[in-house]
Amino acid sequence: MKTWKVDIILAAALIVISVVSFSDSRNYPDIASHFPVRLSIVLGILALVLLVKSLIKRREEAMFTLTGEQFRVIVVVVAAVALYTTLLGHLGYLSSSFLLMIGMMTILGFRKKTVMVVTALCTVAVVYAAFNLILGVPLPQDFFMAK
């Protein structure tokens, strides 16, 4: 996508954010609203400058390239981490982390199943040992560990 077009979309998004931020913060009590209200105004002004600048300069070079395949893999990785976060409280740390490891390796194209399972088990065990057993960080308990 061309740089100037991306910058226009970015400027428009920033203007929306500054308007939302301004309308929310001006309802705060006087002292609490001072700083955020001013910041919202400054953000709006800077976004307008970006908008005008990109319209005047019209930089034609591509800002970034992202193929459909690459976009899909990013969406799937985001979904996997979101699913993990949801499952963490229900299944517990060990089970959901094992599933995350398997899921991530599969998404990324790793195909050796035995290596995958052994790696996932070892990694989860090492991270669990480091955080929970050695450093005493309480991690969500698994259903099979519940007393």
Partner: peptide
């Protein structure tokens, strides 16, 4: 692929460990 999956696990565990909160993740 394995390293990236392990990094992801380390990230989520680290984020959780800060305040023992799923919200942090």
């Amino acid at each position: 692929e394995t390293l990236t999956a392990a990094i992801a696990l380390l990230c989520v565990t680290g984020a959780f460990a800060v305040g023992n909160s799923i919200f942090n993740v």
